[in-house]
């Protein structure tokens, strides 16, 4: 079973607090474009929010696609995470993921995807509308 975040996207209001806290925690500044979760406002049509993040799917095509084995299994969390040092930002994982769950950071130096904040996802804690669950 998937170990990633779960979202009831119908409840999302687009406040992007998840993106703010994610970047604040991961890169020490408030920078939504460096967040590991992405919320896009799609208005006026279809009039909804699109949520992208790593589902930690069972097939993990990102892992198979990586030429340098930079997406490694974290025993403690039981999920796949990006080893920033190994990653060459080739973008193969971004291509391979059918869920738009990972992307390159804005400087194009490595692939970013959800690492569940080491077990306590900050976005889940902060979401004021209870959209996100672990």
């Amino acid at each position: 079973m998937s170990k990633g975040l779960k979202a009831e996207k119908e409840k999302c209001t687009g406040c992007q607090l998840c993106m703010l806290v994610c970047s604040g925690t991961h890169v020490s500044k408030f920078n939504p474009s460096e967040s590991r979760i992405n919320v896009e406002d799609k208005f006026p049509e279809p009039g909804e929010f699109k949520l992208n993040y790593c589902l930690q799917c069972d097939e993990h095509p990102c892992v198979e696609s990586c030429p340098v084995e930079a997406i490694v299994f974290d025993e403690g969390l039981g999920i796949y995470v990006v080893d920033k040092e190994k990653c060459t930002a080739c973008g193969a994982c971004v291509e391979a993921c059918p869920y738009e769950g990972c992307w390159l950071d804005p400087s194009g130096t490595y692939s970013i995807k959800c690492d569940l904040c080491g077990g306590t996802p900050q976005c889940v804690e902060i979401c004021p509308k209870g959209v996100l669950k672990r």
Binding site: G24, E34, E125, P128
Partner: peptide, 20 residues
């Protein structure tokens, strides 16, 4: 994509969460 920086990010995040 340049972000906004504050003096003490960990404290700032903690305070913001509490205040929210």
């Amino acid at each position: 994509t340049m972000g906004v920086e504050v003096p003490n990010i960990d404290e700032f995040v903690k305070m913001s969460k509490e205040m929210l």
